[in-house]
């Protein structure tokens, strides 16, 4: 299967969305709203719930149920207030010493005038910066599209997992094709060149593991994901905070391939 085939799969609307995963993964949930600065962004669906026996803060990007819902959620493209809501709840999780689980599925942050007026770049930057110092474990699962900075703002985490067909990219293949070749129809070539598949993420050290997809037995699949997340959470919760932060720092610190004085470093 090519990268483009997977891109088409994750963009299909009959695929389970953020809200489906939230319902299947977390029990006894209480949803929380608003960034306490400007507004509520429904594209970010967040709250407190149980992952098995563990209380967690969950933060999911949701593309929406029907057309109306999708339009309200900008098809899963968060506004700055969405990222600030996510950050508020991460800080709250830090205060109450509970881990954070993020579910990522976005084409990217919403590209609109209102987003720019309210500091879309600054909102994402602040999330990344604060996540690098967040004193509680953070897990991120890319369940569909991991679109650029808009995804990284919820994925500067201790562990990142990819669903089997999920993709993660520095720019949408569509955007890449139109910038590079001035031809948006070459999205297939761009998808291949950008290396966006789950296996690519594991190869580059961007993700730890890949979750097999079985949407016909969705609850069973989510049960397996839950078991894995809980296992990793328990290990992370057992770490001292300085060690947790050190390992998170190093997780990103070692990513990069460059040449130094004639030899390749990676």
């Amino acid at each position: 299967m090519t990268a483009y085939d997977r891109l088409k799969i994750v963009r299909s609307s009959d695929r389970p969305q953020g809200h489906d995963f939230v319902e299947a993964l977390f029990t006894d949930r209480f949803e929380l709203c608003g960034d306490r600065r400007f507004a509520e962004d429904p594209a970010i669906m967040a709250g407190i719930g149980y992952l098995g026996d563990q209380v967690v803060t969950y933060i999911a990007i949701d593309k929406g149920k029907d057309l109306n819902d999708r339009m309200k959620k900008h098809f899963g493209c968060p506004l700055p207030e969405g990222y600030r809501k996510a950050l508020r709840l991460m800080k709250q999780a830090e205060k109450f010493h509970r881990p954070v689980v993020c579910l990522v599925d976005t084409l990217g942050a919403y590209p609109g005038a209102e987003g720019e007026e309210r500091g879309q770049g600054q909102a994402i930057a602040e999330n990344i910066l604060e996540m690098m110092g967040l004193r509680t474990p953070v897990l991120s699962v890319v369940i569909g599209e991991g679109g650029s900075g808009g995804a990284l703002a919820l994925a500067s985490a201790d562990r990142v997992y990819m669903l089997e067909n999920a993709v993660y990219s520095v720019i949408t293949p569509d955007g890449c094709a139109s910038i590079l070749w001035k031809d948006a129809s070459r999205v297939q070539d761009a998808a291949a060149c950008l290396h966006i598949t789950a296996q690519d993420m594991v190869d580059f050290g961007v993700a730890e593991d890949i979750f097999r997809e079985d949407f016909d037995r969705f609850d069973k699949m989510c049960g397996e994901i839950k078991t894995r997340l809980l296992c990793d959470l328990h290990a992370l919760c057992a770490m001292s905070v300085p060690r947790l932060l050190e390992e998170r720092y190093n997780r990103f610190r070692r990513i990069g391939i460059f040449e130094e004085n004639g030899s390749i470093r990676q």
Partner: peptide
């Protein structure tokens, strides 16, 4: 540089 360049933002 694909996803590796995105990760530089977090690094």
């Amino acid at each position: 540089e694909g996803i590796v360049s995105l990760m530089q933002m977090a690094k």
